[in-house]
Amino acid sequence: MNAFSELDVAGGGTTTALPGKSAVTLTINGKETRLEVAPWTTLLDLLREYLDLTGTKKGCDHGQCGSCTVLVDGKRVNSCLTLAIMKDGCEITTIEGLAGPDGALHPMQQAFVDCDAFQCGYCTPGQICSAVGMIREGHAHSDDEIREQMSGNLCRCGAYPNILDAIKQAYAATEKQAA
């Protein structure tokens, strides 16, 4: 008998068998997707290894670099520390979902290109998702606040000053649009 009113997936211990999978529904970049996932699959691995959405990057896999940042229900999170099974019913936005349906770049994406806010490009999707999330959260009022709020996204190429410029450009563009 199942003691749980909600989801329950068997597994456990150092067995030779692998855990069972369970059906979840995620809305990814606006598209409702039904999937079978095992408890130990992170949202990051789900995107990259099962859905071929490789725009979200694995930099450290431990929540220490921000490369895997995606928006879950509009808020930026580290997808590497998120078990996919826990996000049943949630809306996920990845870098692939930011551009317009016609392929036009999101203002933040365009600003990153304009300001040369990246070099190797590997932290970039995470930076952009984080920046979009930050603006949505309402925490981009000054240079220092942006620097602090973006400190969860490492950039080993050291593009930070250009990232700051790009965020300000995109923020101004969205403010203007809203006005």
Partner: peptide
């Protein structure tokens, strides 16, 4: 390998 359950 762990089991997963969601508490209601």
């Amino acid at each position: 390998n762990f089991s997963y359950s969601r508490a209601g």
